[in-house]
């Protein structure tokens, strides 16, 4: 195909957008509504996922050291823990420090124990993959000079299974939404093309090849996708910037979890919305024209 023919196809597709008035409006509206839904939903799901990640990262394995262990044994144990596969980081907290934490949490009375501290020295370890905490903990338990290994058994499993279910449900919902969007948009585009099936027939009679007919339609679908992405992108950006400004200061103090930073997250979502609009537009036109080209 020659360059000027491609230029011609671009001109034609733009002309068609303006000459089809209401049909363009209908398609763009369908794209707008579905992309807005997808955009907002992706925004929510990505943040929930971030929260889940933050919660997971908070999971720690607590290794209590045998009371009888001497300095050398403790150093060796630290090395052993570090050498265990699946461990990301290890921090040591001697029993004095442990007691200070209790004092902070439960009051000055506990200072009485400073004379004869009944607590164990503790290693705090984090698993590289939080979901593997249980396995890693079992490995640590087998090391020498450990008194007990705790990681919130029972609660952790429940948390993880809850988070996993949440993620899966979110994924299924997003896929279902995408599917609906594709269906809705390609159907709307199909209606606008059905109205022009006679045009396609005539073009073929005049000697146009299938691609010559198809490309302007495909480009038109692309424009529809781009036009339909404008409002969702604007709304999602404004919405997220406001939510972020509103919630971030409150979450800052909590330290438990944070929202995804405005940049680059929102630009990624915007790119996704635009890409989806374009792809769905192109796909919808392609599929619809295909039917009528078999003359």
């Amino acid at each position: 195909m020659k360059g000027r023919t491609l230029a011609r196809h671009f001109r034609e597709s733009l002309k068609s957008i303006s000459r089809n008035g209401w049909m363009t409006f209908a398609s763009v509206s369908a794209v707008t509504v579905t992309l807005l839904l997808v955009g907002v939903f992706v925004m929510i799901m990505m943040n929930l996922n971030k929260v889940a990640d933050d919660l997971e990262k908070d999971v720690e394995i607590k290794v209590y050291v045998e009371l009888t262990a001497d300095e050398a044994a403790i150093t060796k144990l630290e090395q052993d823990i570090k050498d265990t596969t699946g461990i990301e980081e290890v921090t040591y907290s001697p029993k004095g420090e442990e007691l200070s934490k209790l004092v902070v949490d439960f009051g000055e009375d506990l200072r009485l124990f400073e004379q004869q501290n009944p607590l164990h020295d503790v290693f705090y370890a984090k698993a590289t993959n939080p979901q593997e905490t249980e396995k890693v903990a079992a490995k640590l338990d087998r090391l020498d000079n450990t008194f007990e290994v705790k990681y919130g058994e029972g609660k952790i499993e429940k948390l993880f299974s809850f988070l996993n279910t949440g993620r899966n449900v979110g994924l299924v919902l997003i896929l279902a939404l995408l599917f609906t969007a594709m269906f809705l948009i390609s159907n709307t585009i199909r209606i606008t093309i059905v109205a022009r099936r006679r045009d396609i027939e005539i073009m073929k009679l005049v000697g146009a090849t299938n691609w010559f007919i198809r490309i302007p339609f495909i480009l038109e679908g692309m424009w529809l996708g781009i036009l339909g992405a404008i409002i969702p992108i604007t709304l999602v950006t404004v919405l997220y910037s406001n939510i972020y400004k509103l919630l971030e200061p409150k979450l800052e103090s909590g330290n438990l979890f944070k929202l995804l930073e405005f940049s680059p997250f929102i630009y990624q979502v915007n790119a996704l919305i635009l890409l989806m609009g374009v792809l769905i537009g192109i796909w919808g036109s392609f599929m619809s024209v295909r039917k009528f080209l078999r003359v």
Binding site: M1, K2, R4, T5, R8, S16, R19, N20, D199, E201, I202, M203, L205, V206, G207, A208, T209, F212
Partner: peptide, 21 residues
């Protein structure tokens, strides 16, 4: 006649030449 309704007289005739680039 089988003319393309959204194209002008000129564009209808030109179409036959556009397809041969």
């Amino acid at each position: 006649f089988k003319l393309l309704p959204r194209l002008s007289v000129y564009e209808n005739v030109a179409f036959a030449l556009e397809v041969i680039e």
